[in-house]
Write a protein that binds this DNA or RNA. Sequence first.
DNA 1: CGATAGTAGAGAGTGCCGCTATCCACTTTG
DNA 2: CAAAGTGGATAGCGGCACTCTCTACTATCG
Lengths: 213, 213
Amino acid sequence: MRVGELSKRSGVPVPTIKYYLREGLLPAGVLTSPNQAHYDESHLRRLRLVRALVDVGELSISAVRDALAAIDSSEQTMHKKLGMVQEAITTVPNTPIDERSVQEVKDFLARHGRHEDVDAEHWEISRMLTAVLSAARSLGHDRFHEQLEPYMAALEMIAKADLDYMLGRAKSVDDLVESMVVGTILGDAALIALRRMAHAVESERRAKEEDQV
Amino acid sequence: MRVGELSKRSGVPVPTIKYYLREGLLPAGVLTSPNQAHYDESHLRRLRLVRALVDVGELSISAVRDALAAIDSSEQTMHKKLGMVQEAITTVPNTPIDERSVQEVKDFLARHGRHEDVDAEHWEISRMLTAVLSAARSLGHDRFHEQLEPYMAALEMIAKADLDYMLGRAKSVDDLVESMVVGTILGDAALIALRRMAHAVESERRAKEEDQV
DNA sequence: CGATAGTAGAGAGTGCCGCTATCCACTTTG
DNA sequence: CAAAGTGGATAGCGGCACTCTCTACTATCG
């Protein structure tokens, strides 16, 4: 197909597709003459992935580029792949850090199977967590870190479901990494939405309970 | 204190503070003369809240304004307050919707205590969920909605912990709404970080297991 | 007392980001 | 054949979150 059809099928305007091509988010089509190129289903698929990362994941164009690089790279172990995906996908809030939060994160990591190897300073995820706890403390929420325990208990269940899903879907190696990206990004959004729902349901439940008393 | 000290104590540049004042994110100080104003601890607190919402929550300035309006409003029931907070805080991805996803969300809501009153079309949260499922389907993940069940099971636990936290902290009514905002925004970020951690831990665990076999 | 630094308020300017618009020399399609 | 569409490249645009600049003051230090 040509760019017009790609545009129609994806809902993305032609100039935007050209922009993504320039930015390297989308591989060029096969040229049949100096000003004609053919695109196939893989382009459509990739284009939809880009849109999902931008619209749902709210990734910047350069973060999308990193995520796609992770997908396209030929890393061996699942573990390393997941690391690359996470690196590309997560952004650490740029906020002042306080020392007590750093310690809290270290303690937390020690309690949850990350004692040895990992240097917390250089692991993006742990820096993100530290930033959150620091922000909480600066707002007077200095016991916020206690919430992490119930969170982690629940998230272990979720992580199992996630990995089952990712591994279950993957028919090829490329598929696996793509599932990681999609599962992580869409999962984040789904989690946030469901948490809001659960809040609404629970607050309603408590309101009714109080009525009856 | 004057604006310079407010800046020093919060880490926010003076011009930015002035910008927030203009945008109505921060109430004006008390004027002691035509070009001198005094700010107090409440301004500092509010300023830090704004930064947390911007830096950690990645809210836009206008979303922050809405969130603060929710905090400052004098709504009665906790339930309605929570609704306002959620409305202000959540942004629905702007992405094409397909009908099957709409139906899946409806079914899901019916299964989880939202059968009666709520019209799903107008509840932001359910529109967000629909957007996520639609994006998933467009990427070929048409069974993604099955993940929602294990997610919701875990989130019910989390929601209980969240409400306990919010209600437990609040010493006044204003406090409660602020706790909702902070708990929701920081909780989102913490949840995302911990989910990444849990993924890493679980994928490591599975890799080791496989080694032993 | 004067020199220096800080201030409120308001408008204009900046830098970045994610697109759009325009143009050219072509093909393809009806 | 004319009209519509295309690849490629460069320039432009609109929004956003600041940041700068300016004026007419006020506070403070030596």
